[in-house]
């Protein structure tokens, strides 16, 4: 990582950090933050919903076990295969694109949004939602039935129970999962690398350009600087996670 502060000849410099304030770098950082935040939020909300649906099934049901197992697989599912799957679905000649074209005449593919930031949001949710399911399902399972029964006995409606008991109890786990999802999306590279061939909408792709570029010499150290930037963001997320956890879980051990 020392490379971030070195120039081509190995002398110490802060010049590489200047590269972080270039338009391309700022746009990429913004893109990465938007992508990570939106997929973390969508993934967390939908994943929590799906986790709730799964946990509300009886513990012995085959359906419940199957969905949890599938979630475990899909959460690890990224990279080349995932990019292919979405190109085959809503790419220029994707199955769904063609079906919608035949049915309504509308062009779902449009001007190629799949290969830009909006496309990445849709595709990233594919692994973010299952990840949320496996991370968050245990939190739902940890809600003791007695808490609900005690609340109901004391006069709480279903809404009161969720508002005053279940949601506050789930909050720390939810926030933790949210930040985990953020870091996960922020660090993801392979899917975007295959999907996006033009432009560098997010930081990892800008790093790829920096370290594979043979045209612009001396870019390798800019890659180091960008990598350092990623570490800083991830560290901030981790610190924020710990602070949040401390604030929201005073009642825990």
């Amino acid at each position: 990582m020392v490379g971030a502060f070195q120039d081509e000849a190995g002398r110490l410099t802060l010049g590489n950090l200047d590269a972080l304030t270039s338009d391309a770098a700022v746009t990429a950082l913004k893109g990465s933050l938007i992508l990570s935040a939106s997929t973390a939020l969508i993934g967390a909300v939908l994943g929590a919903l799906l986790a709730y649906l799964i946990v509300s099934m009886s513990p012995q049901s085959l359906m419940r076990r199957a969905t949890l197992a599938v979630s475990g697989v899909l959460a690890q599912f990224g990279g080349v295969v995932l990019a292919f799957a979405w190109i085959a679905t809503i790419g220029p000649v994707g199955v769904v694109t063609k079906a919608i074209m035949d049915l309504t005449g509308a062009n779902l593919y449009g001007s190629g949004w799949l290969f830009g930031l909006p496309g990445l949001v849709v595709v990233y949710c594919y692994f973010q939602i299952p990840l949320m399911v496996i991370v968050f399902a245990p939190a739902f399972e940890g809600l003791r039935p007695q808490w609900r029964e005690a609340a109901v006995n004391l006069g709480a409606s279903t809404w009161d129970y969720w508002r005053h008991v279940a949601l506050p109890l789930l909050t720390p786990a939810f926030l933790g999962a949210l930040l985990l999802l953020f870091a996960n999306a922020f660090a993801a590279y392979a899917t975007a690398a295959v999907l996006v061939s033009q432009g560098q909408p997010i930081v990892p792709l800008l790093i790829r350009q920096a370290i594979t570029s043979e045209v612009l010499l001396g870019q390798a150290n800019v890659g180091f600087a960008l990598a350092l930037e990623m570490i800083v963001v991830v560290t901030v997320v981790m610190v924020a996670y710990n602070l949040l956890l401390r604030r929201t879980s005073r009642w825990m051990r």
Binding site: L53, T67, V70, L74, A88, V95
Partner: peptide
Amino acid sequence: VLLLAFAAYFFVPLLAMFDF
């Protein structure tokens, strides 16, 4: 209904890939 919607989101891409 919700589970079906989730299933569609998760399985259509795989089927599309097979189709392709």
